[in-house]
Structures are given as C-alpha cells and as structure tokens.
C-alpha cells in the first residue's frame, strides 16, 4: 500500500515541473488540477493504511474544495490585456 503512495507522490513532484515552468497560465491550471486529484488519491490510500475510516471525509471535502477552486480561478483570474 505504501509503495503506491510513494509512486503517486513521485508522480505529483514530476507534474510540478509544469507548474514551475509553464509557458502560459492555463498550462499551470491543468497541472494544478492533476496534482490535486493525485493528492485526493493519496488521502484515500492513507485512510486504508492507517485503518481509520474518518479520513475518507477529509478526501470528500478536499474534492469539493478543489472543484470550487478550479471554477473560480477559470472565471475570475485576470487576463492582462483585457483591463
């Protein structure tokens, strides 16, 4: 179980390169969404590793929060040449 968590966190660190060096702003948004879903999978797997089922609620709340974040960023981020 723990090797799966290690592989997913390694994959998230590899995907952070696109946030670090994206040419434009939607690239960073796509990479942020991907890293968020990977962290949600890590939360679900940690709930199985510690055998405490209360941690699944944290995963559910974090999923809702991530979706709201992406929607608000895509609507309200400033486009530089539109004033």
């Amino acid at each position: 179980m723990l090797y799966v968590i290690l592989a997913i966190i390694l994959s998230a660190i590899l995907a952070f390169y696109r946030v670090f060096k994206g040419p434009s702003l939607p690239d960073r948004l796509v990479a942020m969404n991907s890293i968020g879903v990977m962290f949600l999978l890590v939360l679900v797997l940690l709930s199985y590793y510690f055998e405490r089922k209360i941690f699944l609620d944290v995963a559910l709340v974090y999923g809702i929060s991530l979706f709201i974040n992406v929607l608000i960023m895509a609507k309200y981020l400033k486009i530089p040449w539109k004033g």
């Binding site: 942020m32 968020g36 962290f39 939360l43 974090y62 991530l66 960023m73």
Partner: peptide, 17 residues
C-alpha cells in the same frame, strides 16, 4: 501574481496530507 495564487492550493493540499 497569478502564478503565486495558483500555487497556493497545492501548499494547502500538502499541509492537509
């Protein structure tokens, strides 16, 4: 400033884990 505000939920997610 937009790049900084995109990275903020990742910081929060790592803190949650």
């Amino acid at each position: 400033l937009s790049n900084s505000v995109i990275t903020l939920p990742l910081f929060g997610a790592i803190l949650v884990i």
